[in-house]
Design a protein around this nucleic acid. Structure first.
Lengths: 214, 214
DNA sequence: GCATCATGCGTACGCTTGTACATATAACTG
DNA sequence: CAGTTATATGTACAAGCGTACGCATGATGC
């Protein structure tokens, strides 16, 4: 299935891209310059997923390429092919990790609250704190939203994420309030990420108080 | 660095000096099959911007290419080069139009309200209505958010958009409430776009009432 | 020690992309 | 009507892309 129709190549023949014949003679493939040794790297796949998240945050899904991730992780291009079935597999793995990690923080912070007041404080802390707002997390989340809205196969990630958020809020608030709080968190976080002069902490606190008051 | 292999360029084209024998047979390069004539198409640039918005909504910024937009608008590829300085110019024009159009609706709907209660109803209508939620608008907005968060040259678009929204809300609400409402609108709209079972209208109404209640 | 296999590495290939540009024609200007 | 400008169109090309794949090598089980 690969390279069967070589005669079809309409490309200009002269001047091949690679002027100096790379290696002295015809052994085109096996070269292996002994300079860079092979590295034993257990857990490379896990590391690649983290690096991919950073690349997504910096360049967007549009600018995330196997080559860029490989370069950022300092692994050869072929390693991407080995560890991931394709671009979608890489994106899926990266966004799954992002959602899981963020939801973990959400759970942890909320589970420490014992009263409704403490839960409200926890929500304010989540919005104004550094975890949800870490720019890498925020940028990658926006990319995930855009992707999930357009492609159903990524919706499972956002669905699970939202379900976990709601469940964590349900421990302290009635279902309707939990829904409204969830939306408020989404909106304020997004707003604070995009706005030049972001909403003050006291305004966030007021908003949360107004939503949770009976 | 361009056109290195113009080998057939130097050859004098013999039949050229005597102009008007043009339709007789195929010209070497520009064939011009007589089926598709050149079209006079005033306002093509404006149309291309609209078509581009649709392509962005369907394929994302990642999948938006000159060729795809050209095909969707049924214009030749070269037309993209002529009307837009580059990909960024096209994206900028498209997102500027999206923001302006959405803000217009926002303004119009809110300006029709005379009391705080009517303004609240207007906000509920905006969130649950069909304009902000038209899937094309929502998808393209998400793409804009993601792009603006990452690239400052697109922030001017979102900044102006948010400023207009806030100003429209200021006509009816105090500054702090306007900020909170704006964030709530953002969050609920986003939530309703991504969620499988979106928040009900009555829940949206309750949330708005809680925020605007003094 | 040796066979087996998972992992690591370099590179080729077909394809798409953004962009440049020569050329053609309509619109406009005097 | 002639000349000029604005717009339209087809095509070429370098760069970058995802992916495939042959080979190398270290780990593992016997």
């Amino acid at each position: 299935m690969h390279g069967q129709y070589l005669e079809d190549d309409g490309r200009a023949r002269p001047a091949e891209q690679d002027g100096p014949s790379r290696r002295g003679d015809a052994l085109a493939t096996g070269g292996t310059p002994p300079s860079s040794r092979r590295r034993h790297d257990p857990g490379r796949r896990e590391r690649l997923i983290d690096v991919a998240l950073g690349v997504i945050a910096e360049y967007g899904v549009a600018g995330t390429t196997h080559r860029r991730v490989a370069a950022a992780a300092d692994v050869p291009l072929g390693s991407m092919t080995y560890h991931f079935a394709g671009m979608d597999d890489l994106l899926h793995a990266a966004f799954t990790r992002l959602a899981g990690r963020t939801a973990d923080v959400f759970d942890t912070v909320l589970s420490r609250a014992d009263t409704v007041e403490e839960a409200g404080d926890a929500v304010v802390g989540l919005i104004t704190g550094t975890t949800l707002n870490a720019s890498e997390t925020m940028l990658a989340s926006l990319e995930l939203y855009a992707l999930a809205a357009r492609r159903p196969e990524f919706r499972t990630i956002t669905d699970a994420w939202m379900a976990r958020s709601r469940e964590a809020l349900h421990a302290h608030f009635d279902p309707q309030t939990a829904l409204m709080l969830d939306a408020l968190i989404e909106g304020t976080t997004l707003h604070r990420a995009l706005s030049l002069d972001p909403m003050s902490v006291s305004t966030v606190r007021t908003a949360v108080e107004r939503i949770i008051r009976p």
